[in-house]
Design a protein around this nucleic acid. Structure first.
Length: 798
DNA sequence: TTTCTCCACTTTTTT
DNA sequence: AGTGGAGAAA
């Protein structure tokens, strides 16, 4: 929420210079007066951006400059002006942003009218349109949408078919190459023509086969949702014209993160009426890696020479301190549109630097700080570079009983059992979908192994029928064993019975009965393990989610539900007003703001994330990401880094992020870390900070020359290349102080006899990992072999 | 043919 | 550290 407040309406008559002087009560005058009232709360520049609703407009909106506010007021203003809501198209970056915008507009005009505006992401909106126009493209309306995982498994299958080794060419790399080609609107033919290296040649072949596969499955991947729109508009001018008429006013948020294909569609749609308004900030472009083309925003003025350009440079969100830090960071980037972002807000508190011994302490410190905070829980957000970092934070929050919400991350929809349920439903909706059919054949196991499936696939290929059809005719496939024939046919008739109910049953009823008849629920029931229980629960969650959906949308079809779930990233979308801390990646934080923000893991290699070599461009993108993170904060910003961190299950000793040195030392002070309290000398925090931020390559064994060196040195852990297993067990964390000395001192190795509190005596069979995550496998006579985390197991060496 | 075990890969970020 | 795939054993 912007902190900008609306002035009271009553003041409108004497303060607004644009107020109509007429006393007439004609419709026009009334509506004009209401408009000025509507736009009253905007500053002159914002107002300009909102008022110019005809012709091309480029809004360069700095972070926190009230961009969303301008957009919502602009649309509300349009509606007040008499523009039909259904002629307005507003494309946002996430579904959530779209929903919020619609809600806010609803409060300004009426909910009823706001609902008629076309809002959504490029992908969700285009999926809707393509569903309607599928025929024209040779798809059926029930086409499936494949996510990145689905794509990957097809690519694997295709590579197997072509005999391309997955060792030499990583499927994920191929997928990225294909996706990037699609984002540049290169067909497989064009790609093959341009292919130079062996990798590109192979990718070209896979691309071709991949496309064939999707077509055959009546499926589109995420990129196709854009590409097929372009194809549709290019081949059917009448369809294009229909949508040009439909979307006479187009607005695009986060324009800096659009790619070439999106740019193309937008230009096609806007060509006729030219009422195109794009909003963006080149400094916040953080999706170049997935094809976003910064040129789209840089070239807008060239493409639309008559474009009105508005710069929003006043920041209403953050304190002077935070904004200054953000500016000093982003100014290190060479490639950017120079902007002068300023704020009238107070200086505010200094930025706190939290220096921690390890990731666990980092998490604890953050949680403690949140608990001490006078602000409500929901005022806090913790941001990090990689999803993996949420684990430690989550643990700490749970230990301290602090409610939290993780945005994104390991999405509910990515869970195996959830994907299985959706796969069943997709096959019912789209029987051509071989991919999803194969996914569910042996879930639960139906005695149809690799060989049987190969026979069926061959049969389908020879007769040029779908795999689904091959299952139906399984009895006539002589190469199949009798048992496999029956099994395959039974499987088919089970699915077909469900399919027959598609038009009579409500989608949720259909799903429920299908889950019973397919045996998936029973499989997890019979298993009885805790994990199976979880999975069973998750299936129930999907079913009740679907039931809820049907309640809300009584006329919705199964296809509609599947389409929406394919494009939603998380079932537990951020619910506004929840009483919880929010955790998310820096990428998902884009567009959000919080009074208190933590950015965790400011370490070289993690943030900025670096692979072997990093180009200037990549570095600048990381820096923009840091800029985005800083500017999420309204009042207080905490930056933290740890000196030990587990990555890939291994202990690493990272140095502080070079980004820290890019913030003026006078803006920062040390938060109370355990390190500081232990070594609190009279040292100046600022010099400590600047020393630290030089990410000194100083060796640990360098001679201490002064107090400062002492300070830095004693806080550092020795950084052996390969920490000996279990070696630092005794000093890894204060928690060990709870364990009596005699219990942890003894050296555990393979073959050791150990005593466990519950399991009794046993023999160590195997050991793995180091430090806190060290594990032992112990053979107990009573309960058999157990894998234990050494840290928790409280083993006594005998 | 299935199931188990081990191995390799993953983690950058997302519609 | 966890997951998914490939290969070997039952």
């Amino acid at each position: 929420m912007s902190k900008l407040t609306l002035k009271p309406l009553s003041s409108s008559s004497n303060t607004s210079t644009d107020a109509p002087s007429s006393d007439s009560f004609s419709n026009e005058a009334i509506s004009q007066r209401r408009q000025s009232a509507l736009l009253e709360g905007l500053n002159p520049t914002q107002r300009e951006a909102a008022e110019v609703i005809h012709g091309p407009v480029l809004i360069l909106a700095g972070a926190g400059s009230g961009k969303t506010r301008v957009l919502t007021f602009r649309i509300a203003y349009m509606i007040e002006e008499g523009i039909a809501p259904w002629n307005i198209l507003a494309l946002t970056f996430t579904n959530k942003a779209a929903g919020e915008m619609q809600e806010r507009i609803g409060k300004l005009v009426s909910e009823e009218r706001a609902r008629k505006i076309w809002t959504g992401t490029f992908h969700s909106l285009f999926a809707r349109i393509l569903r309607r126009e599928a025929d024209a493209l040779g798809f059926s309306t029930s086409f499936s949408i494949y996510d990145a995982d689905d794509s990957l498994s097809i690519i694997r299958a295709v590579m197997n078919g072509l005999g391309i080794s997955q060792q030499n060419f990583q499927p994920t790399g191929i997928r990225a190459a294909i996706s990037s080609a699609k984002n540049k609107m290169l067909s497989w033919q064009e790609y093959q023509r341009n292919a130079g290296s062996l990798f590109e040649k192979q990718t070209g072949l896979i691309y071709q086969e991949y496309e064939k596969r999707l077509q055959k499955n009546n499926a589109m991947d995420f990129d196709d949702l854009l590409l097929n729109m372009i194809r549709l508009f290019r081949t059917k001018p009448d369809v294009l014209e229909r949508y040009q008429e439909q979307f006479r006013y187009i607005m695009i948020d986060e324009y800096q993160d659009t790619n070439k294909a999106q740019y193309e569609v937008v230009n096609m749609l806007a060509r006729k009426y030219r009422n195109l308004c794009v909003v963006g900030d080149d400094a916040q472009s953080i999706y170049r890696w997935r094809g976003a083309d910064i040129r789209n925003i840089l070239d807008f003025e060239r493409d639309y020479t008559d474009a009105k350009v508005v710069r929003l440079e006043q920041n209403y969100r953050s304190t002077k301190t935070i904004l200054e830090a953000a500016n000093s960071v982003i100014n290190r980037n060479e490639r950017q549109i120079k902007k002068a972002l300023w704020t009238g807000n107070d200086d505010g508190a200094k930025i706190q630097l939290l220096r921690c011994r390890d990731d666990r302490e980092e998490a604890e410190l953050i949680v403690k700080t949140i608990k001490r905070s006078t602000k409500p829980l929901e005022a806090h957000a913790v941001l990090y570079r990689t999803n993996a970092q949420s684990q430690a934070l989550e643990d700490a929050l749970r230990r301290e009983n602090v409610p939290y919400l993780i945005v994104g991350g390991v999405s509910f929809y990515k869970r195996k059992e959830v994907k299985d349920v959706l796969a069943y439903l997709r096959v019912i909706a789209n029987p051509q979908d071989d991919e999803n059919l194969l996914r569910i054949v042996n879930e639960p196991p139906r005695g149809l192994g690799k060989t049987s499936l190969e026979h069926l696939q061959n049969y389908a290929a020879q007769r040029n029928v779908t795999l689904y059809e091959a299952f139906r005719l399984a009895d006539t496939v002589d190469v199949l064993q009798k048992r496999a024939q029956t099994s395959a046919h039974d499987f088919w008739s089970m699915l077909d019975r469900a399919k027959a109910g598609k038009d009579t049953l409500r989608p949720d009823e259909l799903a429920k009965s299908l889950m019973v008849s397919c045996g998936l629920l029973k499989m997890y029931e019979d298993d009885g393990s805790e994990e199976a229980q979880d999975r069973w629960n998750n299936i129930q969650r999907v079913l009740s989610h679907l039931a809820e959906y049907c309640e809300r949308n009584p006329d919705a079809s199964l296809e509609q539900y599947l389409q929406e779930t394919a494009l939603i990233s998380d079932l537990d979308e951020v619910k506004a007003g929840g009483k919880h801390v929010t955790l998310m990646t820096l990428h998902s934080a884009k567009g959000l703001e919080y009074p208190v923000v933590f950015i965790a893991g400011l370490e070289r290699g993690l943030f900025p994330m670096s692979k072997s070599e990093m180009s200037q461009d990549e570095m600048e993108e990381e820096r923009r990401l840091f800029y985005v993170g800083i500017t999420r904060a309204e009042e207080q910003l905490y930056l933290s880094h740890a000196e030990k961190r587990y990555r890939f299950g291994e202990l690493t000793y990272p140095t502080p992020s070079p980004f820290l040195a890019e913030i003026g030392a006078e803006l920062v002070e040390h938060g109370s870390t355990s390190i500081q309290s232990r070594f609190s000398s009279g040292s100046s925090v600022n010099s400590a900070f600047s020393q630290l931020s030089q990410q000194s390559s100083r060796r640990v064994n360098a001679p201490a020359t002064n107090n400062m060196d002492n300070f830095l040195r004693s806080a550092k852990q020795p950084a052996p290349k390969e920490p000996a297993p279990f070696e630092d067990l005794s000093n890894a964390s204060d928690d060990y102080s709870q364990i009596p000395d005699d219990e942890r001192k003894g050296t555990i190795k393979e073959g050791s006899r150990v005593q466990h509190e519950i399991f009794g005596e046993g023999t160590v069979v195997r050991m793995a990992g180091a430090g806190e995550s060290a594990q032992v496998e112990v053979q107990f006579p009573s309960v058999g072999r157990k894998k234990l985390v050494l840290r928790f197991a409280k083993l006594r060496v005998l």
